[in-house]
Every structure is written in structure tokens, then in C-alpha cells.
Design a protein around this nucleic acid. Structure first.
Lengths: 210, 210
DNA sequence: AATTCGATTGGCCACGCGGACAAGAGCGGC
DNA sequence: GCCGCTCTTGTCCGCGTGGCCAATCGAATT
């Protein structure tokens, strides 16, 4: 028998396992039995923590959004805006994006997921626009509409994630190069300043072994 | 009983129904019984045309890729490259992109789909690079690396499709504006030339009623 | 008009799913 | 050391699924 665990801890365990499986198998294919096996418990236990499968998946996506928002917050509040922008534009680790791409494909059919994703994206764009404003304020670049520039860069990053993570058409280095070059051109930054100032931290979270 | 049909015609009917349902419900949720009901036959008949569910879905994605490639081809061979670029960058109709977003999320788990998608993307990028080359040759713009520019614009378009179709964060007009502005800046085109030269044809194919 | 071939039907099967629940087992309060 | 709470187990159920197949029907050929 699995050792009795603190309920909050078990809950987190289940959510983490769910996200790992969603990244690996896709939202629609994850079964309660899979999650239970991943955690190492019987599938009946999952229902002790989440009344329905739908609630489990909703909680998992919420956790993913919250984690992403925390990372955004960390970047947005850095002292130096240009390194913050460089890291913002760097390709998010693989595991994250499999969850996001899956979420995009589910969003049109799942109003709550859709609402959660759009709220997060709006906040995220606002934070990115804030970074852009600080760059402009420091005299290092220009922007006639930081919000529009943020939306443009967000779309580019998401598209690059599709090309890199889902399709494997470009490697991580080219994805970063494209994002950096486009941002530098758009914001009138000195060419090459972004690649020189990035920190490349390890932001991996849910390890997936394919 | 459904009237006896020409086999090729019935096959196309089944594939079209499958694509409609994939766009509406997502790849993993489409059942053979759903497809049969959409066509108006019994589920046993589907197996008469496709041995397994997997083969059916593969055929459907192939058909989608082929249709998209034909549209690309049409645009790439237009006489005037700038209107061709404008239409290339215009937001692809809703129905198409629900299928693509779903395909992106499935590709990492489905080697054949992955291969088909990457081959199509490479051809598509090559065609877009050809359009860019013709613009440069006509003296209307500049590009130091048409392939890289094509990949950048493709990523931007895909990302804009996510923002618009899946998340509804931006409307079609803003998606087009962002794509046009970015392309004009990147290729050194006269500002506003793209929006003035677009043809906005109706490229809708698989009508979906949500 | 009879024949033939295959498109079409409808019922069948085993399987895995989400959900439900009674019984068991660990742990803190007394 | 006992009690009580709840975390955890194992089993059960009905349902929908993909796949299978024998029987039926319809149109073209002869």
C-alpha cells in the first residue's frame, strides 16, 4: 500500500503526474488509471481528491498557468529590462510547450480552459509590454505601441514553439535567433544586444521521457 | 438504407466528414460512429473503406495537407508577388486552423503525421521564399536570406493563428495588421503596400458549426 | 430476367473507460 | 491503548469504443 500522505502533498503529486502525462500523451488520452499508475496508487484514490476527471484536468491546467505566471512575474520584475526581454524570448523548455499546444487545441471546446488561458495571456502580454516600456524609458529602444509590440512578439514566440517543439523544423538556436533579431528590429535595439545579455537559466519543470 | 455510391465519392465524403469532426471535436475524440453518423451511414461501412481508425485519420490529414499545398501552389505561381505575399499572410479561415492546431498537438506522438507535416511545411516555406525572391528581383524589397525570412513569417502566422483562432485574443484585422507590418519591415517594403494589394478571397473549405 | 459482385447493413464481441462504494489501514487525539 | 477520522484499497457496474462478420440489398453485366 502506498504510504499515507499529507493530502496537500498527494494532491500536488497527482497534478504533477497529470501534467507529465498530458505533455506525453495529450489531454484527451490521459486516463485516471494512467495518472494513478504514474503516482503509484490505485485509480480509485484519484476520485478521493478530484470528483471527476474534468476537475482533475482543470486543476492541472490551472497549476500550469500559475507556474508560468510566476515565471513571467520573476522576469518582469528584474532590474535590467534587456536581459529580462532576452530570457522572455528564449525558447521555453520542451515540457511546458507540449502542455500549451495541447491547451490551445482544447481551448475552443472548453470554456473554462479558454477563459483561464486568455486571462493568463493578457497578463503575460501586459508584463512583456512593461519590460518594453522600461527599455524605452532607459533610452535603449523605441516603441510606438508597447502592447501591440508585446502581442506581436508573443505570437512569434508561440509560432516558433510550434516550429521547434511540435514539428522540429527549426532548432532551439534558430528559434532564439529569429526571436532576438525580430525584437531588435522592432524595438530599434542595437543588433546582437539580446543574445549577449541572456542568462539561459534552466526553467524545466515536468520532466518527460518520450 | 443510404443510396449506393461511387466508392471514390463515398471515400471523399467520409474524409470530409472526418475533417469536419476533427475541427469541431479534436483528433482524439472523433469516433467511427460519429463519422458514420455525419455521413449518414452505419459505422460498419467506415471499415469497408478504411481498415482501421488510424488509417482513416491518416487519410484525412493527408487530404488536408494536400488541399493546403494546392492553395500554396496557387498563391506561389501568381504573376504579381506582392499581392501573393499579402494573401499568403492573411489569416487562413477558421476551419483550416482548428485542424492544424490539432495536428501540431498530435505530431510529436504520430511519426507519420509528423513526417507529413514537416514535409509540407518545408515545401510551403520554400514557396514563400520564392515569392520573397521575386519581390527582391523586382526591386520592391530586400532580403539577405529569403529562407530565414520565410521561416520567420511562417512562425509569426502560426502564432497569430493561435492567438486569433484558438484563444480569440486578437481579431482577424489585427492579426493581418501585425503580419503585414512585420513583413513590410523585414523585407523593406513600402509601408501599407500589402494591405492595399490583398485580394481577400474566400478560401473556406470545411464549414464547421459550433 | 437472371446473375454477380461489392456496397451497405445491423448485431456482436472484448476491452478500457469514468464512476461508485464498502471495507481496510494508518495516524492523531484522548 | 483505544477511538475516530480519512486516506487508501479492490472490486464492481454500465457505457461507448474499435473491430468483426454474416446477411442483405442494388446496380451493372450478361
Amino acid at each position: 500500500m502506498a504510504t499515507r500522505l499529507d493530502p496537500a502533498e498527494r494532491r500536488e503529486q497527482i497534478i504533477a503526474a497529470t501534467l507529465r502525462l498530458v505533455a506525453r500523451d495529450g489531454f484527451a488520452r490521459v486516463t485516471l488509471r494512467d495518472v494513478a499508475a504514474e503516482v503509484g496508487v490505485v485509480h480509485g484514490l484519484i476520485r478521493h481528491y478530484f470528483a471527476t476527471r474534468e476537475q482533475l484536468v482543470a486543476a492541472a491546467f490551472d497549476a500550469a498557468v500559475l507556474a508560468e505566471a510566476a515565471e513571467d512575474e520573476e522576469l518582469a520584475t528584474r532590474l535590467e529590462p534587456i536581459p529580462a526581454l532576452a530570457d522572455w524570448l528564449s525558447t521555453t523548455p520542451r515540457d511546458h510547450y507540449f502542455v500549451w499546444i495541447d491547451a490551445w487545441s482544447e481551448a475552443p471546446r472548453n470554456p473554462e480552459l479558454h477563459a483561464s488561458l486568455t486571462r493568463h495571456h493578457r497578463e503575460s502580454d501586459a508584463r512583456l509590454a512593461g519590460i518594453i516600456r522600461r527599455i524605452v524609458a532607459a533610452g535603449d529602444g523605441t516603441s510606438s505601441d508597447p502592447e501591440a509590440d508585446a502581442r506581436t512578439l508573443t505570437a512569434l514566440i508561440d509560432g516558433l514553439a510550434v516550429q521547434h517543439h511540435a514539428l522540429g523544423l527549426i532548432d532551439e538556436a534558430e528559434a532564439d535567433r529569429i526571436a532576438f533579431r525580430t525584437a531588435e528590429a522592432r524595438l530599434g535595439l542595437e543588433a546582437g544586444v539580446l543574445v549577449r545579455s541572456r542568462a539561459t537559466p534552466d526553467r524545466s519543470r515536468w520532466a518527460v521521457t518520450h
